[in-house]
Amino acid sequence: MGLGQYTDDISLTRQTFAAFARSTVANGQIKKIDALRAEKMPSILAIFTGEDFLDVVGNPAGWLINSRDGEPMKEPKRPVLAQGKVRHVGDAFAAVIAETEEQARDAIDALDVEIDKLPAVIDMKSALKPGNALVHDEIETNQCFD
């Protein structure tokens, strides 16, 4: 059989493909994303970075909860593409739309990127220690709720 139609099985006329550039570090400052070479590659339709979504509110948490003392949880902004900082390995910081998947991926590889690696926390206990790296600077703690 094999006739099921999953999203990836759909093929439409003039269909386009997205590929994402993702962080290879757990915490980093984005210094440069230069798309000059990438945007000149064949069939590249658009290149986006976090800067293109500054006026877009981040992905909301679907389930807001309160701490035991009733205080609402701290909700980070979670931008659709990383802005300024990458916060985990795999954090997407750029997206390319192209006519084929291969061309989109090639353009991602052609981005000229500089990310300064920052100290990261990799376990729960050190995440809570004051002074250690923060995932979301604006929240001033790594504890979302208690």
Partner: peptide
């Protein structure tokens, strides 16, 4: 095909046999 084209992509994209999943 391109040299880098994987068999699964050839089956899915060139032959439209999308039952084989990635």
């Amino acid at each position: 095909v391109e040299g880098r084209t994987l068999l699964v992509d050839f089956l899915r994209n060139s032959l439209n046999l999308t039952g084989t999943h990635v």
